[in-house]
Write a protein that binds this DNA or RNA. Structure first.
Lengths: 356, 356
DNA sequence: TTGAAAGCGCTACCAA
DNA sequence: TTGGTAGCGCTTTCAA
């Protein structure tokens, strides 16, 4: 393990100069810099992170904070994918990703009560999921650590956030039912209010319905599971038998809707069309295979890394929302024949929207 | 943020004494130690981890290393659960868990090529999954960093490992088919050789079959997915129509077997019984609901933490395998009526088997 | 543009 | 049982 001093001695310069050269800081002659970089490469110099952290009181770590109940959600694992994308993109940049799952009581106690925020502090913090309370977010943001939200956003704040295009995804799904399959009585199956993705998906549905001159019908359940989806769909089918299609806020509820249809003796998609959202791994194996909207989760992790790096390096100062494109995945539950599944993948696209 | 020196000055002792007291090291008077601990508590003293790492050349981090393709396996997410259990158990002990996903080329290049192994080094390394090559494992083990395997083990080595009770689980599942449902022509659907969990599960099946005087029939597929399970089951049904039950090496293959049955016009469980392994989250929602063997993944993460802490603290010096108990989850695909699903949960049990 | 040196806060060795 | 102190390797300020 070579050290700064070793490099300095070999080159006959001071450690300060070597440090400056290696860190791209001004005040080093071009030729000197070149020689330093060359030798560093040759000796495979790796900075000692503890020493750097001690001197700067910052680690090279990024905290991935997620609610304990939500990290590995059984009905819809979302955050592990994002974390992996983040890790893959950050590993090459010299940053490590630390998993921190927090409980309700920690959420309430706030970030300062957590030892992971002690000196030296992380380079950045990723707050993942809509169930991180805004008080926790706000408290974190005042800590002078780069903070970014994923699958969540604060309406009145300028915190950077990475989101999937919920509204457009749900709009496209609804549009498909209307335009391709000619449905008119399309009901939305959704969960409780408050989560940004639910709200945006609902907005997409409503937008498309009204712009097609159709009446939006919304059924809200207390949760977004197979069971609640089934219940809500059953209720919908009983109270409004004219319903011919469901847009579900996620795949679990969509699967519940298919079960409800079967329970009522209805065939999917002949008597009832169903579309979901998220494209979870087993949505292709339901009977019939589920038409749904895919969310590029790993890409969202990579996007998060990019935004973070931009902020850490000071390249990007304006606050932005980064929106990952979603894609309609057409299978059979909407009424299509399953052959047309592949739609060109624009998952890697991303657009940056300067906030306000 | 109080420092060691601050405590020392307040108490009128040296920093060395304070350090010893706080770290439970010998050479401090009982009364002095008490006073130090008291003041530390009062001031909420938190050691600066960078300083400690610089002095000891060890971080307080634990690396969770898993193959990039395997961390979030779409057909059977396993490691995120384990990682979460690990994190939960370690957070209170002052350790952080860093996710490191590695590619094939990194696997080949070995641990020393990775920057996460530079100075200061992690307190411990968790190598998760059977697709970490033994050369990588061996190289890691020589690094003088506490290393532990999860869902994997080296036969000729004394490395500690945490595993689920695959053999007993598969034996119990097979036993259930024989004993409760009277099947005699039971075939095993499995994947490629080499993975320890597959081998052990196969062994459990073979053990139970032979001890019941029945002939084991094994179908190996190239992978353990729904598709390969379906193919293998189809092949089995065509070549040996007398088959009345399948034991599948995992839930995905079991689901494939159910699809194959449907394809052949067979009813599950009336004409064909199927049991799986892993109890993945949607195994309760297949048609019929899948009888399977549950693996306490979060608990395995906690067990890993415990073994790690024992080793770090030097409490435990003998190398062990820690085996997490598995449980048969009886649903309907075996022929039972679904009511009996709950079997007392002994998931938290664990037994330690001194190696050799 | 370069160098010297003062820390950062802790651990661990050596003396007392 | 205690204290003094020399690093650990880096960043950064101040002088040259």
């Amino acid at each position: 393990m070579s050290t700064l001093r070793e490099l300095a001695e070999r080159l006959g310069v001071s450690v300060a100069t070597v440090s400056r050269a290696l860190n791209d800081k001004p005040g080093v002659g071009a030729e000197t810099r070149r020689r330093v970089l060359e030798l560093a490469q040759e000796l495979k110099y790796q900075p000692n992170l503890a020493a750097r952290s001690l001197a700067t009181s910052r680690t090279q770590n990024v905290l991935f904070i997620v609610h304990r109940r939500h990290f590995m959600d059984t009905k819809d694992p979302f955050y592990p994918y994002i974390m992996q994308g983040l890790e893959e993109a950050l590993a090459g940049e010299g940053y490590s990703v630390i998993l921190v799952t927090i409980s309700d009581s920690q959420l309430e106690a706030g970030p300062t009560a957590m030892s992971v925020f002690r000196e030296p502090r992380p380079s950045a913090i990723v707050l993942a999921g809509p169930d991180i309370s805004s008080s926790f977010i706000l408290a974190t943001a005042t800590l002078d650590i780069k903070t970014i939200l994923v699958d969540n956003a604060l309406s009145k704040s300028s915190l950077p956030a990475v989101l999937q295009d919920n509204q457009e995804g749900c709009r496209a799904a609804t549009h498909h039912l209307i335009d391709v399959h000619g449905h008119e009585n399309i009901a939305l199956l959704r969960g409780p209010n408050g989560w940004i993705s639910s709200e945006e998906r609902t907005a997409g549905y409503v937008l498309e319905m009204t712009s097609a001159g159709l009446q939006p019908i919304i059924y809200s359940a207390a949760d977004t599971t197979i069971e609640t989806g089934q219940e809500a769909a059953l209720h919908a089918l009983q109270t409004r038998p004219e319903t011919t299609a469901f847009v579900a806020i996620n795949d679990a509820m969509a699967i519940g809707a298919i079960r409800a249809a079967r329970e009522m003796g209805l065939n999917v998609p002949e008597d009832l069309a169903v579309v979901g959202f998220d494209n979870i791994s087993w949505s292709g194996y339901t009977d019939p295979p589920l038409t749904t909207v895919s969310v590029p989760m790993r890409d969202m992790g990579r996007m998060t890394a990019r935004v973070l790096l931009d902020r850490i390096n000071g390249t990007l100062s304006t606050s932005t929302r980064t929106i990952a494109a979603t894609d309609l995945v057409v299978r059979a539950s909407c009424g299509c024949s399953e052959s047309s599944e592949s739609i060109p993948d624009r998952a890697a696209d991303e657009k940056k929207i300067p906030e306000k």
